[in-house]
């Protein structure tokens, strides 16, 4: 599918560069990346280890700032934003799913899902909204469980519920199935694709798994900080 050029892309990355400095040594992680992602698209990012996939995801997720280049997220020039405005953007527009789930160990699934709402001004009916999100990932009967009382797949579902609870436009998943067996991994991917279908949430997944990329509409191949190929998978 060719991107719909009639509407503005939700993610517009132009000539993005990122250089890390380790003492005197400069490590270029991204060397000029151009990507446009339309609303509702599913994009898979693939590439060998160290090719800059996570670095790119951090830029898109406003967790890190680029050394050079332009990033426009949903019409916002991200480099112009202050720290607190970036926090608000992350809170409202982006849902993160990490490889290691990153749940708070001491609190229940429900409270983990409530967490993003505590940092939002829209924090009415928190419990109801968290419950709905957990229902959407099929965990309504595990709400009171703590992370260590859940399987890896279930923990990743809680993380997905947490990512969608503020109804973001984009979900960024960096190797969401990396810690799971193939069956649980498949279920997680199906869940994410289902959310994309039902809610129209833009989905960007970093993965090494060809099955996952097969399910995506677009696959972007990175190597040494550059896009070396882009194609439709179906």
């Amino acid at each position: 599918m060719i991107p719909n050029t009639k509407t503005d892309p939700v993610i517009d990355v132009r000539d993005l560069k990122k250089v890390y400095h380790i003492g005197e040594i400069e490590v270029p992680a991204l060397r000029g990346v151009n990507i446009q992602v339309q609303r509702g698209e599913v994009v898979a990012i693939m590439g060998p280890s160290g090719s800059g996939k996570s670095t790119l995801m951090n830029m898109i997720g406003c967790l890190d700032s680029p050394s050079d280049g332009v990033y426009i997220l949903d019409g916002l020039q991200v480099s112009d934003l202050r720290d607190d405005e970036l926090a608000e953007v992350r809170n409202k527009k982006i849902g993160f799913v990490f490889q290691k789930y990153n749940l708070l160990p001491r609190v229940s699934a429900l409270e983990n899902v409530e967490l993003p709402m505590h940092y939002s001004d829209e924090n009415s009916h928190m419990q109801q909204r968290a419950t709905d999100a957990l229902k959407a990932v099929g965990l309504e009967d595990r709400m009171r469980h703590k992370p260590n009382e859940l399987s890896g797949g279930q923990q990743q579902r809680v993380a997905i519920a947490r990512a969608i609870v503020n109804e973001p436009a984009i979900i960024l998943a960096d190797e969401p199935t990396g810690n799971l067996d193939s069956q649980a991994g498949k279920e997680i991917i199906d869940l994410l694709l289902g959310l994309n279908r039902e809610r129209g949430t833009t989905l960007i997944i970093v993965t090494h798994d060809p099955d996952v990329s097969a399910a995506a509409q677009r696959v972007i191949h990175l190597r040494d900080g550059l896009i070396v190929g882009e194609g439709e998978s179906r």
Binding site: R90, L115, P116
Partner: peptide, 16 residues
Amino acid sequence: TSEIGLRKALGARKLD
């Protein structure tokens, strides 16, 4: 540290 990172990713400001 990683909990703080997570909270920031979820939208926590410095003040929070």
